[in-house]
Deep mutational scan, measured.
Amino acid sequence: KKKYVIKVYFEDTGKEVEIEAESKEEALEAAKRLAEELGLKIKKVEIYP
């Protein structure tokens, strides 16, 4: 089964997080949740198959 690796870059902090997920949708949801939890804004998202 294919996994996606999503790199999320946050504004202000210069922080980046990698998330593995089964689908792009799932990964983007996780990225949004994470940003909310951390109180950060997402600057850029890169998706690698």
Rank of each mutant, 00 (worst) to 15 (best):
V5T: 12
E20P: 08
K2R: 07
V8L: 09
K44Q: 12
K24W: 14
L34R: 06
L38A: 14
E25P: 05
T13L: 09
K7F: 06
V17A: 05
T13I: 13
K43F: 05
P49M: 08
K32W: 03
A31Q: 01
E16C: 03
F10M: 02
V5C: 02
K24M: 14
V45K: 01
D12Q: 09
E37R: 04
A21Y: 06
A31R: 00
K15T: 12
L40I: 10
A21Q: 02
E18R: 07
E25A: 14
R33N: 09
E46I: 12
G14A: 10
K7D: 02
V5G: 05
S23R: 03
K32C: 09
L34M: 14
E18L: 13
I6D: 00
K24H: 14
K1E: 11
E16W: 12
V17L: 12
L34I: 07
Y4C: 07
D12A: 11
K15Y: 13
T13R: 12
Y4D: 01
V45R: 01
G39Q: 10
G14T: 11
E26Y: 09
K41R: 11
K44G: 09
E37I: 06
L38I: 13
K24D: 14
L40V: 11
Y4V: 15
V17T: 07
S23E: 06
I42P: 01
G14Y: 14
E26C: 03
K41L: 12
K41G: 08
R33P: 00
K3E: 08
A35R: 01
K7L: 10
E46Q: 10
E25L: 06
V17D: 02
L28K: 07
K7S: 04
A31D: 00
P49K: 02
S23A: 04
K15A: 06
E46Y: 04
P49Q: 12
K3Q: 12
K44A: 11
I19S: 01
K43T: 13
E26S: 07
E29D: 13
K7E: 02
V8M: 08
R33L: 05
D12V: 09
K2C: 12
A35W: 08
E29N: 10
L28C: 07
P49H: 15
E29P: 02
D12S: 08
R33D: 05
A21L: 05
P49D: 14
V17N: 02
K44S: 13
R33S: 07
E37T: 05
V8G: 00
F10R: 00
L40G: 02
G14E: 09
K44N: 12
K15L: 07
T13S: 13
L38Q: 07
K41P: 12
K44R: 04
E16V: 05
K1L: 09
F10G: 01
K43D: 14
K1H: 10
L28R: 06
K41A: 09
E16G: 13
D12T: 12
K3H: 15
E36R: 11
Y4N: 06
E25V: 10
L40P: 01
A21R: 08
E11L: 10
I42S: 01
Y9W: 15
L38M: 13
K7V: 07
I47H: 10
E29C: 05
K43H: 13
E29G: 07
Y9E: 13
I6G: 05
K44Y: 12
E20L: 10
K44E: 10
E25N: 05
K24S: 07
E22W: 06
K2I: 12
K2L: 15
E20A: 10
F10N: 00
P49F: 06
S23N: 13
L38N: 08
Y4R: 03
R33I: 09
V17Q: 02
L40T: 10
E26L: 11
A30M: 08
E20R: 08
K41Q: 07
K44I: 10
R33F: 05
K44V: 09
K7C: 04
F10L: 05
G39A: 12
I19N: 00
L28D: 07
E29S: 09
V8F: 14
Y9V: 10
E36Y: 15
V17K: 04
V8I: 13
K3Y: 05
G14L: 08
E26D: 12
R33K: 14
E46D: 13
V8H: 00
